[in-house]
Design a protein around this nucleic acid. Structure first.
Lengths: 211, 211
DNA sequence: AGGATAAGTCTACGAGTGTAGACATGCGTC
DNA sequence: GACGCATGTCTACACTCGTAGACTTATCCT
């Protein structure tokens, strides 16, 4: 009997934080990165992001101005850090292939910038923000690791393949790529990356026609 | 001066069609394929599709049951026909590379199933519909053209690369791939497809480690 | 202790969503 | 030539979206 107090003072995720603007801002940004990576720009609302950060929706706009600006900061946060796993050009192909296969495995749920890109690409505004971010951070970095002609173009192709594998394995759920044995997949991907990463002029045989 | 009549009886796209259920259904489906390919599942409303077909929104649901079922039929319509350009395994790599580069050129605006896939992938329901469609139509067809071990897996990787190039060039607008010279891009892509399409056991040198 | 100010919340609006149900209308057939 | 039914439309509902403006509350400084 007797009604319970409507707000049992259990572990409320918001009421406990003692009014710290910087911490709150970071909490919102963290929630935003996670939400945008899981559901994409159009797949999540600011109320949802705010709730999982323990605040109300309006505070998001107060700190970030708008959903679009919040997304821009989330892209920066997501793309800025490591992203590429190794800087050693000799093992680059193998490492990229291995990490890609591992992170797109069915049981893994890594929050990856490529997922954020794929799921937010349909919206034209967010696509433009993503383009700026991936060019400035990921593509530029990868291009710097490559030598020879067309390094930028080859880096772009490699990123296309990476994005495509993310798409097919984690977003679409393509059976052929999900049922494939991981080591086998990594080996084939390594061959492709090797083809894209190596200096085309340092090879003994170009092999292809000249025209 | 003087206001024009609010509805000038010019070429009204709907009023002219003489009540043909089949034709109307096809018109709606055509509009749906175009809209879903341009804006993705969540990026377009049934009212918009209906309007460009010259009918009202409710007629869409009357003919197709729901937006989701309409999307399923649109996927079928989009993925069913040609999709792969040639069936000659000898020129497959070159043809696929050439067509891919041409159709993703900045000036082209080809309505491609891959665009529909990319833009509708974020929605989980439509992603599942797409998976079913691309596996049953495109992937199965491509797998049948390949010989040797892991044909299905290699086909999946090739489709990943194709999707990735579509994404980076036409959706994200990646500068590195858009500024690249078309013939050069096609040549590099042909090499990658050649690596994925050829029978791994029919090669003189496997080159990679055995484990 | 008390007031200033930052930190956070509440209410609301205008627009857009998919779609259910009732209504209007034009065509083929007797 | 009029009826019947398929074809198409109108209105409405219950909801979600981003965000603008007014409001409340806690924290810090003097």
């Amino acid at each position: 009997m007797k009604e319970d107090p409507p707000a049992p003072p259990s572990t409320d995720p918001a009421a406990r934080r003692p009014r710290d603007a910087k911490a709150t801002r970071e909490a919102i940004l963290r929630s935003a990165v996670e939400a945008f990576t899981r559901f994409g720009y159009d797949g999540v609302g600011v109320r949802e992001i705010a709730k999982s950060a323990g605040v109300t929706a309006m505070l998001v706009n107060r700190y970030f101005g708008s959903k679009e600006q919040l997304f821009a900061e989330a892209v920066e946060e997501s793309f800025a850090p490591r992203t590429v796993v190794t800087d050693d050009p000799r093992t680059l192909s193998r490492d990229v292939a291995r990490v890609l296969v591992d992170r797109t495995a069915p049981e893994a749920d890594h929050l990856d910038p490529f997922l954020l890109m794929l799921l937010s690409a349909p919206n034209r505004r967010s696509a433009e923000i993503i383009r700026e971010g991936i060019e400035r951070h990921v593509e530029r970095h990868l291009t710097g690791l490559l030598t020879g002609t067309g390094a930028r173009e080859r880096a772009g192709l490699a990123l296309s393949l990476i994005a495509g594998v993310w798409l097919m394995r984690k977003v679409i759920g393509d059976t052929a790529l999900l049922q494939a044995e991981g080591d086998d997949l990594a080996r084939r991907l390594e061959e492709v990356f090797e083809l894209l990463f190596r200096d085309p002029e340092r090879e003994e045989v170009a092999g292809v026609q000249d025209s």
